[in-house]
Write a protein that binds this DNA or RNA. Structure first.
Lengths: 211, 211
DNA sequence: AACCGTACCAAACATTTGTTTGACGCAGGC
DNA sequence: GCCTGCGTCAAACAAATGTTTGGTACGGTT
């Protein structure tokens, strides 16, 4: 991905998560450092050809990120499915999830946020279960005891745990008796964000259906 | 509230819940039946003076509903707090709730939806607990087994239960062993909507905090 | 009756905004 | 060397959009 275009996508994502209209062409230029509206226009055309952006109607500020665009922008980053146990699974999302996130976040501190889908049962004690959506706000220094998204092993591994700092060490505690705590040096873990909300449908009926 | 202005507010709310930018002055006029952009402008000025709308930045399509505006628009309808046991409590909302609802609903079937805050523990079995937010989609005929919002006693009483139809009767089943089923004639209950999502923060840590 | 405020319209105006035109420099391939 | 594609700029154009101006009609007040 062209770095300029990536910058544009990121800015579009930022604006989409912020209250207010999508940016104008010149606003984009101002943001990403392009002095000619034409240049922005040029990149926008490419991005539209390649399916990263969209137009909803005609007129001013009708630009919109597509699903592909959100993905490429990265900072919306349904990073992937969080494995309570191990590993990062295939990224999976839908437009509904995006728009859900977009508004859950609007009006917030300006911090970036995103959605994750949970895989695993290690946090059932915090009402987080397999398949739930998490609304995560980026925050590298949340309070002790917060439920956080942590990156381990240089980013290869993502997990949701409750955070406790202990000097040079970081304790990541699951909330499920069957899972074990992780205790690692602070350098080896990067706190990515804090879980703001858990979103899920009501539990399926014991017998019947309803969904 | 001036009916014209109410119409404008409603349209603004509609657009805010829809993907795409806020409407232009002329688009508003088209919608509410005003042929002069000036007239729309006029009402917009009044609405801004009275604190129903807002401007975020300068330029095109920077109009925004304020909390007061959302409330006046009315179609967002945080009807009230649902008492799992009895009674409808005071309506309570905040900007967060509004914006949350706005996006959770966007892109949906066109049915109206709203948020409710749960009071009571009668549905813990369906992962619905006291204080949770419910995203409810209006639906008078949901499938058997769905978790629904039901109005009893001519609307005086609101409750969340799982729905089962039995001939002329309707069974509303709580999911908490300590609560009793409600079995009433179909005429005495009005199904208001179906619970799509449950939204809540992660459960507070057993010991510490983090929120 | 004269006056005032409100709601509305048509038309014009100024600004913003999307888009087009024309040009420059650079890298890579033929 | 020469051509092509790309990224960039400046400038202009055309469409849209927010805003202003001037005017009409109506109802209530003084």
């Amino acid at each position: 991905m062209h770095p300029r275009r990536l910058g544009i996508l990121r800015y579009l994502a930022l604006r989409a998560r912020t209250e207010g209209p999508p940016p104008s062409v010149r606003e984009i230029g101002l943001e990403v450092g392009l002095r000619s509206s034409q240049t922005v226009h040029h990149h926008l055309l490419r991005l539209e050809e390649e399916g990263y952006v969209d137009h909803v109607g005609r007129g001013a500020r009708t630009l919109r990120l597509t699903g592909k665009g959100w993905e490429a922008a990265g900072n919306m980053a349904l990073l992937g499915r969080i494995a309570a146990g191990r590993g990062l699974e295939a990224v999976a999302f839908g437009d509904e999830a995006y728009s859900l996130a977009a508004e859950l976040l609007s009006g917030r501190s300006g911090r970036r946020s995103y959605l994750l889908r949970v895989v695993g049962q290690s946090m059932v004690g915090a009402r987080i279960e397999d398949g739930d959506l998490l609304v995560v706000e980026e925050d590298e220094a949340p309070a002790d005891g917060a439920v956080v998204v942590a990156l381990l092993g240089g980013g290869d591994e993502v997990t949701v745990k409750r955070l406790y700092r202990e000097g040079e060490m970081v304790r990541l505690r699951p909330e499920n008796g069957e899972h074990e705590e992780i205790l690692v040096p602070a350098e080896e873990v990067r706190i990515q964000g804090r879980v703001l909300y858990v979103v899920h449908p009501p539990r399926r009926s014991p017998s019947g259906d309803g969904s």
